[in-house]
Design a protein around this nucleic acid. Structure first.
Length: 464
RNA sequence: GGCGCGGUACCCAAGCGGCUAAGGGAGAGGUCUGCAAAACCUCGAUUCGUCGGUUCGAGUCCGACCCGCGCCUCCA
C-alpha cells in the first residue's frame, strides 16, 4: 500500500489512482526568466523520486511539466535586453533541459509552454465568464473568489482573515476584491499580447496550469506537485478555476515539497547565497552528488544547504559506489549461500515499503546500507559466492532505478603510455624496487591519477 | 495578527505509545598493506529543547514555556 501526505486533507492517505495501474502527474515547472537555482531543483528531484518510485512500483505514469514562458519576469527580462520574449526564454529553456539531464531527472511526457496554449486558456476563461465565476474590468478578466465557496481549502486560509495581515497590493489593475486574481491581463504598452476573443492581452499566471494540466491529463487527475510556496495562492487558484470550469474535482492528491535554505537562511540574491546548478558545477562538484544531497532528505522537511552537507552526501554516496565496484570487479567462487537471499529480499522489501510510506527516503537508504554492511562482512571474509554477488548487485541496480545515483557504465581507459608506467611500477614492486615504484606513483599523481594496490591488483582513479 | 514547520549523539537524519533509540558522515580503535592510499570491520545517545501531565509504559499523546525557521506578496 502506498501512502502520501495530501496537502488537501492535511493527512497521510492511501494512494489510489483513478485508473488502475496508471498515474497522471502534473508538476509545476520553471518560469524561464533565469537559470533555476538548486532550490528549484530540490522540488524537481523530489518529483523525480516520486515518479521513479511510481514506475518502480509498477505504475504507468503520464507526466506533464509546464514551462512558463510568459509572465511579468520574462517580459521584463526580454524588454530590458530589447529582444523578443521567445528569444529571451529560449536560452533559459535550453539551460533547463541541460540541467535536468545533468541531474538525471526523467523527462516528462509533455512540456507544454504557456505561449503555445493561449487558445486553451481563452476557452477556459470564456467558460468561467459564462458561468459567472469571472468578470471583466477595464479589459482584463478576474476570477471572483466570492463565487467559489471552497476557496482557501487547500491552503487552509480563511478569506476574511486574509485581509487582516495582507499587505497593500499595489496592483494597477482594478479588481472587485483584493484577492480576486487575474485570468487575463489587458495588453499594455510595450508588452507582448495575443489578439483573442477576450481582446488583446496575455494570460494571468495561474490559468496556464489549469488549462494545460487538464488538457493533457483530463479534468480530474491523480497527483499535482510543487513547492510549498505554491500552495497559496497558485494552487489554490488553480483549484478554483478548474473546479469552477469543469464542475468536478481537479486533483486527488496534492504533494508539496518544503523549501531549501542556505546556511540556515532563505536563499536570496541580496544575501549572495543563491546557487544555480551551474555555480556548483564550477566548484568541481559531481552533479550526482548534488542529486544525492537533494534526494536524501525527506521532501516535507526543510533542507539546509551547506557545503559540509554536500561533502557528507558525497562520502555517503561513495560508500555505495565502492560497494558496487567491489561486486563488479571481484572474482567469486561459484555457488550460493542460504543466508544471502533472505538478506537481499529483506533489503528490497524494506526499501520499497519505506518509499511507499510517503517517500521515506531515509529509511529506504538505511535498508540499502544495511544490506551493504551485511555483504561487506562476507566480502571481508571472502565468503560471498558468485550467484549471491549477482543477486545483490541486481538488487542494488533495482534500487538505483529509483535513486539514479550509480555511475554511468562506461569505463574510462587510460592512454597507453600511462598504462605502460603502471605496468612498469608493478614490475618494480615485484622486484622490491620500491623507490622506483613510489616514484612512478608520485609521477602519476601529478597527472591526477591515484594508484591503489589491492589484493586484486592495482587500481587507479582520477583525482576529483 | 493569522497559518505552519522543526529542535533526537560532534554533523546530517529515521523512528511518532511497548524488544537493547535505524542509517550515513566525521572521529577513535582494528584488519589488510613493502610503504602509502583506499576499502572493510568494531565502537559510539541510560537518552530524544525545557518543565509539568496522561499511561502499567512516552522522543512518540496532552498542556505550558524556550529556541530556530517558513508562509500569509512573484517565488520550487
Amino acid at each position: 500500500m502506498i501512502r502520501f501526505f495530501n496537502t488537501l486533507s492535511g493527512t497521510i492517505e492511501e494512494f489510489k489512482p483513478i485508473k488502475e495501474g496508471e498515474v497522471r502527474l502534473y508538476t509545476c515547472g520553471p518560469t524561464v526568466y533565469d537559470y533555476p537555482h538548486i532550490g528549484n531543483y530540490r522540488a524537481y528531484i523530489f518529483e523525480d523520486l516520486l515518479k521513479r518510485f511510481l514506475l518502480f512500483y509498477g505504475f504507468k505514469v503520464i507526466h506533464v511539466m509546464n514551462i512558463t514562458d510568459v509572465d511579468d519576469k520574462t517580459i521584463r527580462g526580454a524588454n530590458s535586453l530589447g529582444i523578443s520574449l521567445n528569444e529571451y526564454t529560449k536560452k533559459y529553456i535550453e539551460a533547463f533541459f541541460e540541467d535536468i539531464k545533468t541531474l538525471r531527472l526523467l523527462p516528462a511526457d509533455y512540456y507544454p509552454r504557456a505561449t503555445e496554449h493561449i487558445p486553451d486558456m481563452v476557452r477556459m476563461i470564456k467558460g468561467l465568464l459564462e458561468k459567472g465565476f469571472a468578470y471583466i474590468k477595464d479589459g482584463s478578466v478576474y476570477f471572483s473568489i466570492a463565487k467559489f465557496p471552497a476557496y482557501g481549502r487547500l491552503a487552509k486560509i480563511n478569506v476574511e482573515e486574509l485581509k487582516a495581515g495582507a499587505r497593500v497590493e499595489a496592483d494597477e489593475y482594478e479588481k472587485e476584491s483584493v484577492h480576486d486574481f487575474a485570468l487575463w491581463k489587458k495588453a499594455k504598452e510595450g508588452e507582448p499580447f495575443w489578439e483573442t476573443e477576450l481582446g488583446a492581452g496575455r494570460p494571468g499566471w495561474h490559468i496556464e496550469c489549469s488549462a494545460m494540466s487538464t488538457r493533457y491529463l483530463g479534468p480530474t487527475f491523480d497527483i499535482h506537485c510543487g513547492g510549498i510556496d505554491n500552495i497559496f495562492p497558485h494552487h489554490e487558484n488553480e483549484i478554483a478555476q478548474s473546479e469552477a470550469y469543469y464542475g468536478q474535482k481537479f486533483v486527488n492528491y496534492w504533494l508539496h515539497c518544503h523549501h531549501l535554505i542556505v546556511d540556515g537562511e532563505k536563499m536570496s540574491k541580496s544575501k549572495g547565497n543563491f546557487y544555480t546548478l551551474r555555480d556548483l558545477l564550477t566548484r568541481n562538484l559531481d552533479p550526482i552528488d548534488i542529486r544525492y544531497f537533494l534526494l536524501s532528505t525527506h521532501y516535507r522537511k526543510m533542507l539546509n544547504f551547506t557545503f559540509e552537507g554536500l561533502e557528507q552526501s558525497k562520502a555517503s554516496r561513495q560508500r555505495i559506489l565502492d560497494f558496487v565496484y567491489e561486486l563488479e570487479h571481484r572474482k567469486f567462487s561459484p555457488g550460493s549461500d542460504q543466508e544471502v537471499e533472505p538478506l537481499v529480499q529483506k533489503a528490497m522489501a524494506d526499501f520499497k515499503n519505506s518509499l511507499a510510506d510517503d517517500l521515506n527516503i531515509s529509511a529506504a537508504l538505511a535498508a540499502l546500507f544495511e544490506l551493504i554492511r551485511e555483504i561487506n562482512l562476507r566480502l571481508a571474509k571472502d565468503s560471498l559466492k558468485q550467484d549471491d554477488a549477482r543477486k545483490v548487485l541486481e538488487a542494488v541496480y533495482q534500487m538505483d532505478r529509483v535513486l539514479a545515483i550509480l555511475p554511468e557504465k562506461e569505463e574510462e581507459t587510460l592512454p597507453p603510455e600511462i598504462l605502460r608506467k603502471i605496468e612498469l611500477r608493478q614490475k618494480a614492486r615485484k622486484e622490491k624496487n620500491f623507490a622506483l615504484a613510489d616514484a612512478i606513483r608520485q609521477e602519476l599523481r601529478q597527472l591526477g591519477i591515484i594508484l591503489e594496490d589491492t589484493k586484486e591488483g592495482v587500481r587507479w582513479k582520477r583525482i576529483k
